[in-house]
Design a protein around this nucleic acid. Sequence first.
DNA 1: GTATAACCGAGACGGTACGTCAGGTCTTGAT
DNA 2: ATCAAGACCTGACGTACCGTCTCGGTTATAC
Lengths: 207, 207, 207, 207
Amino acid sequence: MNRVGRPREAGIDARIVDAVAELVPQYGYSGLTVERVVKVAKTSKPAFYRRFKSIADVVPLILASRFGTDVDVDTGSVAGDLLEIQIRQCELYNHVLTRSALAGFLDYLAIHPDDAKPFVEGYLAPRRAFTHVLLDRGVARGEIPAGADPAYVADLLTGPVIMRGLLPGMPAIDAELVRRTVSTVLTEIGYTGDRSMLEDFEFPREA
Amino acid sequence: MNRVGRPREAGIDARIVDAVAELVPQYGYSGLTVERVVKVAKTSKPAFYRRFKSIADVVPLILASRFGTDVDVDTGSVAGDLLEIQIRQCELYNHVLTRSALAGFLDYLAIHPDDAKPFVEGYLAPRRAFTHVLLDRGVARGEIPAGADPAYVADLLTGPVIMRGLLPGMPAIDAELVRRTVSTVLTEIGYTGDRSMLEDFEFPREA
Amino acid sequence: MNRVGRPREAGIDARIVDAVAELVPQYGYSGLTVERVVKVAKTSKPAFYRRFKSIADVVPLILASRFGTDVDVDTGSVAGDLLEIQIRQCELYNHVLTRSALAGFLDYLAIHPDDAKPFVEGYLAPRRAFTHVLLDRGVARGEIPAGADPAYVADLLTGPVIMRGLLPGMPAIDAELVRRTVSTVLTEIGYTGDRSMLEDFEFPREA
Amino acid sequence: MNRVGRPREAGIDARIVDAVAELVPQYGYSGLTVERVVKVAKTSKPAFYRRFKSIADVVPLILASRFGTDVDVDTGSVAGDLLEIQIRQCELYNHVLTRSALAGFLDYLAIHPDDAKPFVEGYLAPRRAFTHVLLDRGVARGEIPAGADPAYVADLLTGPVIMRGLLPGMPAIDAELVRRTVSTVLTEIGYTGDRSMLEDFEFPREA
DNA sequence: GTATAACCGAGACGGTACGTCAGGTCTTGAT
DNA sequence: ATCAAGACCTGACGTACCGTCTCGGTTATAC
């Protein structure tokens, strides 16, 4: 049974997530300490460790609370769908939280592969899988020929963005990057239809 | 004067670099401690701090000692040059040292932008600049039209590779990725010549 | 009203006392924790704190349950009475529970004088007062002259015993100590009668 | 070698001892924490643990620094010597440090017998051994017959004192107790000489 | 016979302190 | 001036208990 005993106080989880989100931009991922987090979250170390094994456990929850967990795009055309998911992706990797937390989090996962599982299965994999869905729909609609590799399409969309977000001294993640990556992918998958939506879209969007 | 007193013992720098290279795959970047490093390097903390401000200072030296510092490729064709630099790049990002050290190092740089300068100017920038040289040579040789953006070419080459190297659960960095990224770039820059070298090259190369 | 609601479960008090008695020799007084006690006693912290303010509250109950609370000795002679109470006292201070719990308990009382009251008035004072009774009976029987100080007699009886029980590296509390302390006291109070009972008594007694 | 490395800072040991001596009367032995001690001593936990295994390790040093380590009394007569050592002993057990630290310290030793060794051999044993010396000198001088048991003499001197110092609600350790215990011992060992020094001595002495 | 109220367990709560590790600096005797 | 060794203070680690509180459920008496 997990109904016995005093139930966990609901607000503490959220306060911890918020505290991490607040502190990461200031101190960087590796500058986060549980002591600082619980101080800002107005709770205690034992309450933290009751919920999380480490700060790395909290990071996926920040992504979830800030960027949602579901992928659901359907604009009616492959080009529109790709543009939409690329805009969203660029917003994510351009966000201050991602920029300050991602590298440290990846470093942690590199030596704790077991902890990567929830992140991979809950976040990365669904997004890469959606590329598959999107291309299939395009094939069904007759927009593109069959045969495109969704994994490579995902590489082309995400690779340049994540690179600019992580490496120092890189050009900004901007509307031009969105346009070019989508355009490159459209060529790659043999799309010959309308590309006018690439001429006029909003990026970055409002908060 | 610099010349008075006992001179620095020559081997210590190298022993520290080697110790970091040995320890990074075991402990990860954030698991490195100066104490462990100096113990393995058979030296002392003061000797370490006399040479480096922090472990992050050592990392570029590992890259330099393992992968060299110069970029010098000239196969006579744009396609050959791109293939060569992409093979080299994939070797780098597929190497155990890069995989275990890069994310943590980038996290460090994110909150110590000043320390990023030597890495950016000494490593990243020359490589991105070389893309410019390479494309210019192609234009001069009449292989491709003028107008390609070397920064975006670099994004397309490096982005997918770095993404697969850093994110957990990604497909391997393999010959197929080399082939596709180069091919995509060739299309992007308007290259219409021979692509036969993409059919037969060695990757990964020997040690 | 006290009688409404579910009555306290009877066995819990005893199980707590037994648990403390079981754990004290293993962990020492200061190594006792309420959590360990309630675990061994198969009950819960609230049930414990409903009954006791602290573990120190339990200790007098152990003494009471193991050694009784009443002092009732009357052998017909001062010498016999002193021998009897000294044998009992030596059994107490030689017992594993006393040896492992007393020092810690006294340390607790030193900074919680209010909590000492029940122990002093319920345990120590009656025993010291009984020395008074015993001497008065001796005077009434004409065995000893009036004027002996019962407090000092108690010091002479208890002091050496408690010292050997508390300090490390001391000689054992044995029959010889019983004999000598009683003999010293008899001399001190001017007893000139028969001392033959000091030649043959049983110590330690059976369980 | 123990000459290598930076030497320990001399003052830290003394500051820790002083801090414990200052805090024990306020908080009691069991209320001492290493954190409080190092804060008052203006040092750090690692510096503390480099020197001591626990707070219990510090206690004997307090005794040594406050009451000396040597036993050296020779007044020329058994009665004078006994009076002198008893006065000193009463001062010790009447001191605020002893009263607040002893019980807790003894509790600690009860479950850490190995840690008792230095205290027993460095403090208790020499004092009990001195009783032997003192009686031998008395026998040599012809003041007392041979045969007295120095261990029991030590019990009679120390027992009542330590009992009054440790137990709650006991009479004070005063000149009258000094007089009586010494007198009892003199009778016990068969001393028949002058006892006039018991009529007039100073207790407690000045600081 | 149904409230009511105190009990029961389990276990979370905010705290304090634990003993350890590593940080980066400083101090020693020796090279 | 450098070396290795090892001290220094700081600060964070993850854990153990503290004494309290909250829950779902039980067991009595009182209405």
